[in-house]
Design a protein around this nucleic acid. Structure first.
Lengths: 116, 116
DNA sequence: TAAAAATACCTAAAATTCTTAGGTAAATAT
DNA sequence: ATATTTACCTAAGAATTTTAGGTATTTTTA
């Protein structure tokens, strides 16, 4: 018998940046920890971002000019907010289109015969 | 300006095994080279499996007991056919369900406000 | 009020999966 | 005769993620 390892997260490979860009397009600005919560919430518990994947991805998006940061003091702690740059907004649109194209192609592969 | 790198293939990460299992569920038995063609064809050119990814994936599926092989001589060449085992058939069903769940969750994330 | 949990950031080693770039050889097309 | 297609394969390197930490503040709870 095959025991399903229950890792929807495996499918997240390659979609993390798309998710980040979209969150920011929707919410204006967010900090990392907040993204983890929002993704869990908005995906109805299906996705669980790991911080070990999230922070390096955020740093790369900044390095590539798709995001910028603003730091804010909350008591004695620094909170780091991320926002889309214009380039990031464009990239987001492309990424979503690519994802939709990917899903359509996958549906073709998974449902090859649409009932004659 | 952001130049879209046009790599739908990046999204394929994590779905390769799902695709293989489905191809075999649909076509009964296939050989590797054939899968490359079929995927190109059935995805309307959107996906291009690379052999460097395909063959190791096939070998892993065999090692995990999801596929078995039969060799056949075509002239002087060996052609290696793959078929699902019962365990592989089960795994396929789970994988497809997981993928559909993944897509639903992604749509929730990408289209958060379904027009009031 | 002391301890535990949550908030909030981060990194680094290892694992996984893929791309790139080959190699071999037979069959077919030019 | 040569080039392309068929058909298999591997290995180095790149990219991304998981796992498993670390630090420090703030809030909750027992």
């Amino acid at each position: 018998m095959y025991i399903c390892p229950m890792k929807t997260n495996e499918l997240l490979r390659g979609t993390l940046k798309t998710i980040i860009l979209n969150l920011l397009a929707e919410h204006g600005r967010m900090y990392g920890y907040e993204m983890v919560q929002k993704v869990r919430e908005q995906s109805a518990g299906a996705f669980e971002l790991t911080e070990g994947a999230l922070y390096p991805a955020l740093h790369k998006l900044v390095a590539d000019g798709l995001l910028v940061t603003e730091k804010e003091m909350i008591g004695k702690r620094v909170r780091k907010y991320y926002r889309l740059t214009p380039v990031g907004s464009e990239a987001r649109i492309d990424k979503v289109h690519e994802f939709q194209k990917f899903v359509r192609a996958m549906q073709l592969l998974l449902n090859p015969k649409p009932a004659t």
